[in-house]
Design a protein around this nucleic acid. Structure first.
Lengths: 152, 152
DNA sequence: TATTGTTATACTCTATAACTATA
DNA sequence: TATAGTTATAGAGTATAACAATA
């Protein structure tokens, strides 16, 4: 037995670390979400922007970026791409701020995104019983609160 | 009250998603680990390589990359940089494989890395009671197992 | 003076392709 | 034919700096 070249005696003091377990789990969900969103030609970040604009019509681009932890300089090309694809509209609310809205086509995408996200979420939530899932969510909230310093 | 420009009525159907909660928690741990490791001039990935080479002297570079989910093409410059800094040595075991070892200086770094990782881990583990932590770890393992397809 | 949006730029991470040498 | 290592390269993601226009 053990015909492969994989040494079974490899010592791994890293994979027991909470940070690496978190990273692997997060990566697993992002990778699968990325595949699911690719079915409708979007990346997760684009899908997220569409959902949030749909839930907050007229929201300001800079405020949206602040919520998502995306800097102004990086929001500009993201929004420009969605505008070029006809999924969102922007209109100035004063001389410097832009309000964002979904186009009709964008509304359709928002509904499809919600469905995809629901199915994606369910696929993972079904792995956990209710107790584990609520413990997981409260633990994640406590951990995420440690680095509450995402400035611009 | 509410003197800021933050609209308190912003609707956020994204931040309740498990995937985004995971991503934020993972990011929080990676960011803080990155700051801690920067104190000794290393990035988390470099620190991880040093720890694993220290725990597995003579391990093969490609096997190490496989364990870490880092492709051959990306391992080469990582290992080259640690070699140039005098933290690891490499010696051929046959005509094509390279065995990795820590230098004396690398051993010192490995000990400091272990201490930093212990403190980093403790800082987050202390946020959770024992029940939440074991639920968290089993949940993360179940989630990470979904995307068990990281080929080369 | 601070904020909004934009452009340019750079660095890290990740990915593929192509190549050499070896098993 | 498959594996190990390397190089080159390209795409995301994220960061800063600088600028114009506006509050």
């Amino acid at each position: 037995m053990n015909q492969t070249a994989e040494p079974a005696d490899f010592v791994d003091p890293i994979s027991s670390r909470l940070g690496y377990q978190l990273r692997r789990a997060s990566s697993a969900m992002m990778v699968t979400l990325g595949r699911d969103m690719a079915d409708i030609g979007l990346r997760p970040v684009e899908a997220t922007i569409i959902v949030l604009v749909g839930a907050n019509p007229g929201c300001i681009q800079s405020e949206l970026g602040r919520r998502l932890g995306i800097k102004r300089a990086n929001m500009a090309p993201l929004v420009a791409a969605l505008l070029a694809r006809g999924l969102i509209d922007k209109s100035p609310v004063d001389g410097r701020s832009l309000a964002l809205y979904l186009t009709g086509e964008g509304e359709g995408f928002a509904r499809r995104i919600d469905t995809i996200m629901d199915m994606h979420e369910a696929r993972f939530a079904n792995l956990l019983d209710d107790g584990d899932q609520s413990a997981l969510r409260s633990a994640l909230a406590a951990i995420a609160a440690v680095d509450a310093s995402a400035d611009d």
